[in-house]
């Protein structure tokens, strides 16, 4: 399969990239790692007239610490996320998630920014960004705005990003030493999307759950935040009954699309199981860290 014809542009700066999208009109698209967009173009699901390749834009590279946040260049590949000593030390959740994505070759091309901004509910980073309460910096030639991850996802392939905007930076918090984290993903095989996955971040205060975030991948049109499950656990000691209650509450918000990976009932059930496992692992890690 060969993609449809397009004009190809390779800007060398962010300014140039933003000027190109302005002059190219509605049919232009930014190209990140190309491991979602190129397959979609092969299938004629997407037929941009102009492709603006962000691969040569230096402003979109690199991973830096900035106070209690880490600023991630969206063109960082999944393997760069895995190999980042800074993330391993300050936000180890992200390298752990990236290891669950695709395979070694694909992780050399696929980027965290592409995964985040594409709007595909099957992608893994979006739910993790909700749990981290990350911020997305969106840039256009008109200026810059910062959108919280929790206000970014509207529907499948439908996000807060305008066509002339680029995701310029991803800002995540440094995880404190007492923070437990986990990402549990069920998939049929290497390279497949999640049947269901769950992300949990939690902090304890003398055995009591002080704060918890529970989010879900690929069981709705967007990544989901299981707010009722979070509220049920906050301020309580997390025992088996509390874990089960949270899993049941998380399952209530699932609305997965039926496909070859399973029907709604199966996927919802698996999402519940991923929530149980993620809470247990995050809890263990929070206790170990004390």
């Amino acid at each position: 399969m060969i993609p449809p014809s397009f004009a190809y542009r390779a800007p060398a700066s962010l300014k140039e990239a933003l000027a190109l999208i302005d002059e190219s009109g509605d049919d232009a698209k930014f190209l990140a790692g190309g491991h979602s967009l190129l397959p979609m173009m092969k299938f004629r699901v997407s037929e941009p007239a102009v492709l603006i390749d962000l691969g040569g834009v230096p402003e979109l590279q690199g991973i830096r610490e900035a106070g209690d946040r880490i600023h991630i260049g969206p063109m960082s590949t999944e393997n760069e996320i895995i190999g980042s000593a800074l993330l391993q030390q300050k936000c180890p959740l992200l390298p752990e998630v990236a290891r669950w994505i695709a395979d070694p070759q694909v992780r050399n091309r696929g980027t965290i920014g592409g995964d985040v901004a594409h709007g595909d509910p099957a992608n893994d980073h979006p739910a993790v960004m909700l749990a981290l309460e990350a911020d997305f910096v969106l840039r256009s030639s008109q200026g810059e705005r910062v959108v919280p991850a929790n206000e970014f996802y509207f529907g499948t392939y439908f996000t807060a990003m305008e066509a002339n905007e680029v995701l310029a930076e991803i800002r995540v918090p440094v995880l404190g030493p007492g923070t437990g984290y986990a990402y549990k993903k069920l998939k049929r095989k290497t390279g497949d999307f999640a049947i269901a996955a769950a992300c949990v971040l939690l902090t304890l205060d003398r055995g009591i759950c002080k704060r918890i975030a529970i989010t879900l991948t690929n069981v709705g049109p967007t990544p989901l935040r299981a707010s009722a499950a979070e509220q049920a656990l906050t301020g309580k000691a997390i025992d088996d009954a509390a874990v089960e209650n949270a899993a049941q509450l998380a399952m209530q918000i699932c609305d997965p699309a039926e496909d070859l990976r399973g029907d709604k009932e199966y996927k919802t059930h698996m999402a519940g199981e991923m929530v149980r496992r993620a809470i247990r692992q995050a809890l263990e890690r929070a206790k170990e860290a004390k």
Binding site: Y8, A10, G34, H35, L38, P39, D53, G55, N79, P104, Q105, V106, N108, R109
Partner: peptide, 15 residues
């Protein structure tokens, strides 16, 4: 110096 799948790389990206 990195393994990639050449069915999902455009030749123009290999400049």
């Amino acid at each position: 110096g990195r393994s990639v799948k050449s069915c999902t790389v455009l030749t123009v990206q290999a400049q």
